[in-house]
Design a protein around this nucleic acid. Structure first.
Length: 472
RNA sequence: GCCCCCAUCGUCUAGUGGCCUAGGAUUUCGCCCUUUCAAGGCGGCGACACGGGUUCGAAUCCCGUUGGGGGCACCA
């Protein structure tokens, strides 16, 4: 039987890196085994779902390099792939479970449940549902119906020890009675997650469910429903969650951890994928860099670590810089263009392309190209504080002497510019560091820039002289 | 409260009883290179949570403790 995996995000807000890391593992597992990858959207809780988030999730996945064979946008033989469009299937399934005797109507009210839950806790028992309506007599049932009490449908959890053979966690057991009868369908007729997941995994022929370990305890419930439906439960692999740098689960307070945010900051998809792949998984003791294909070829669910990982933004940036350095100049220029445009600059393509070798090893993110190259694409250059300081400390008339020297440089090349700059510095009794910094400050507006001679060569003689001469 | 999961450098990890005076990466520190900033090269600091077992031998197996995390909903 061929492998079929799925990723089932709930499109409420943007998808965060912990979530896609799990999806990445599921995808890599499917691809490694030459199987199919299914995207299913869990949007039963319509109040939290927006069309925007729905498209955003798919955009983020595609951008990262995760593709799927079946899904809401590409279709497939087991559709529809949005749970909100599968309501009828869930209702029919619940009906079937009811007539089979695997599910029953529960008339308990919220306050009754609350009361009994508190009592159970006081007795040191698990607070789950006590099963009261499971054994209702016909007469009692009729009585509740006559009262007009709304009924939720609960699954009758088999009374036995439940065992999950998890691919990551190993064998996990729950004693009989530990897992209570849970709601399959709310009294308003809408299905609950526990039902939808089981039904969809069964109907979509999912063979391996790879998901976050917060769902570990729902595995035996999912499996029980599938078995009641006459199916064989899939294999489960619960991977640990990704935490923030403080060791707490990723949340809003960790700032922007969405895939979209990293994209907007200029993180390369190949870098993010590589970094995420190594969060909780490793190919071997040495391997640090893996392409998408490498990951697919090497991925082994058995090697997924069973302890939670912290997200380390610094390491991601380091890796991003590595990937940026590996990019060709045309490719890099094309990717930087977006960020420069967003910053209001309109770079001339040829110049942008020529600037790439100067900045590629200086950028941790593509967004940093803006600060590094601003001086080339605008003449609105105002020295920052440190630059102003450098200019102020330069000998009187130093910049105009430099301008005069540069006016005579032939040809206008980095080599010749460097020679001229050195002569100016030497005549003023300055070394390179002291002698070049004022020029850098005046020409680029900053104390930090790409290499000076190359920068000036790109800037051009006219604009360089203009800046040196207009600096007081 | 009950149940479950987890525990190696700050961080991500290698390690499945002897190859470990614990390896790699990142971070950090120092040196080299150097026009600034980076990048690059070299080197240093840095970990088996604790306590009991089992064994000739334990980071590796077992038990307990501590510490983290998750679950126990008509949330997903």
């Amino acid at each position: 039987m061929s492998v079929r995996c799925r990723f089932a995000p709930a499109p409420s807000g943007s998808i965060h890196v912990g979530n896609v890391r799990t999806g990445l593992f599921s995808w890599a597992f499917a691809r490694h085994h030459g199987g199919a990858f299914v995207l299913r959207v869990e949007d039963t809780d319509s109040s939290r779902v927006t069309e925007e988030a729905y498209h955003g999730v798919m955009d983020s996945l595609r951008w990262l390099g995760i593709d799927w064979d079946e899904g809401p946008d590409v279709g497939g033989p087991h559709g529809p792939y949005r749970q909100s469009q599968r309501m009828e299937i869930y209702r029919e399934t619940v009906e079937r479970l009811r007539t089979q005797g695997d599910a029953y109507a529960c008339y308990c009210t919220e306050s009754e449940l609350e009361q009994r839950r508190a009592a159970a806790m006081a007795r040191g028992e698990p607070p789950g549902y006590d099963g009261r309506c499971r054994a209702l007599t016909e007469r009692e049932r009729a009585g509740f119906e006559a009262e007009g009490r709304p009924a939720a449908i609960r699954f009758a959890m088999p009374e036995a020890e439940h065992v999950v053979h998890d691919l990551v966690k190993g064998e996990v057991r729950w004693a009989s009675g530990q897992l209570r009868d849970f709601v399959l369908m709310r009294s308003d007729g809408t299905p609950v997650f526990l039902l939808a997941v089981a039904v969809d995994d069964l109907l979509m022929g999912i063979t391996h469910v790879i998901r976050g370990d917060d769902l570990l305890a729902s595995a035996p419930r999912n499996a029980a429903v599938i078995e009641a439906l006459g199916g064989t439960p899939p294999a489960y692999a619960h991977v640990p969650q990704v935490n923030g740098s403080d060791g707490k689960p990723l949340s809003k307070r960790h700032g922007s951890t969405s895939v979209e945010a990293f994209r907007e900051h200029g993180v390369l998809p190949e870098a993010l994928m590589n970094y995420l792949a190594l969060l909780g998984w490793s190919k071997d003791a040495e391997t640090t860099f893996l392409s998408r294909d490498d990951l697919v070829a090497a991925f082994d669910i058995e090697r997924v670590s069973s302890n939670p990982a912290r997200f380390d933004a610094q390491k991601l940036e380091w890796m991003n810089n590595h990937y940026i350095q590996g990019l060709g100049d045309d490719d890099l220029a094309a990717r930087c263009l977006h960020f420069l445009s967003v910053a209001g600059l309109s770079p001339e393509p040829a110049m942008l392309r020529r600037a790439m070798p100067l900045v590629k090893e200086r950028m941790k993110t593509l967004a940093e190209s803006v600060e590094l190259l601003r001086f080339l694409f605008t003449d609105d250059v105002v020295p920052n504080e440190k630059a102003a300081d450098l200019i102020a400390k330069a000998p009187d008339g130093y910049l105009s002497v430099a301008a005069d020297a540069l006016a005579r440089v032939e040809p206008w090349s980095a080599e010749a510019i460097a020679v001229a700059l050195d002569e100016v510095a030497a005549r003023a009794g300055l070394n390179r560091t002291k002698g070049w910094q004022p020029v850098r400050a005046a020409a680029t507006g900053s104390n930090v820039s790409p290499p000076l001679p190359e920068s000036l060569e790109l800037l051009g003689r006219e604009r360089t002289l203009e800046r040196l001469r207009s600096t007081p």
